[in-house]
Amino acid sequence: MRESAAGVRVQRKQRTPADEELLKKVHEGDPGAFDMIVKRYKMRLLNFVFRFVGDRDQAEELVQETFLRVFRERKNHERISNFSTWIFTIAGNLAKSELRRRKRWRFFSLDQPESEEGTEFEIPDESQRPDDLTHDRMIERAVEEAMETLSPKYREAVILRDIQGFAYEEIAEIIGCPVGTVKSRVNRARLRLQEELKEWMEGIQ
């Protein structure tokens, strides 16, 4: 836009740089460019990874690791056609690795011999009794518990679709499988979730 002869200032609309451009600037040594990438993706990635692994501290570490990997790959910026799906692929892979690691640990801990009665004595968590929880928190917790029953590949698909709002084509790119497979995974995940939440949903009606 130009300034008119009469001196009337016409508002100039600044073009927002694309993610790929920002990565190129990071490669060229522009420190502000990386801050902008972090600002753009921090919350989305954090929520994606948090819903995936269910632990905020862990999610933060994984998101930081995601950004570090993006930084390491700055030299290869020309090869990245879709930054948005690429960064979610990195985060998703890290989250899946974390779940695999936990599963291994759980395997080892479950392998411990049980007590003679066959049951372990558990101290109830008094800090989060259902009657103390707010309605929103109850919903969130019920959904979290239902999500934990999903295997990582179904969990990832449904989070990307229903929480992050990605198109099926984008999810296919992130996960690296055909759109039909993604749709099938999302459908199966939703069917499982509605089954898991069936009693809860009927209870609050």
Binding site: E140, D162, Q194, L197
Partner: peptide
């Protein structure tokens, strides 16, 4: 129920970073 699950997921609160 599937519609409601979708709405529930869509309406989950956003977590903030530390």
């Amino acid at each position: 129920r599937m519609r409601r699950v979708r709405d529930l997921l869509n309406g989950l609160p956003q977590v903030a970073s530390s």
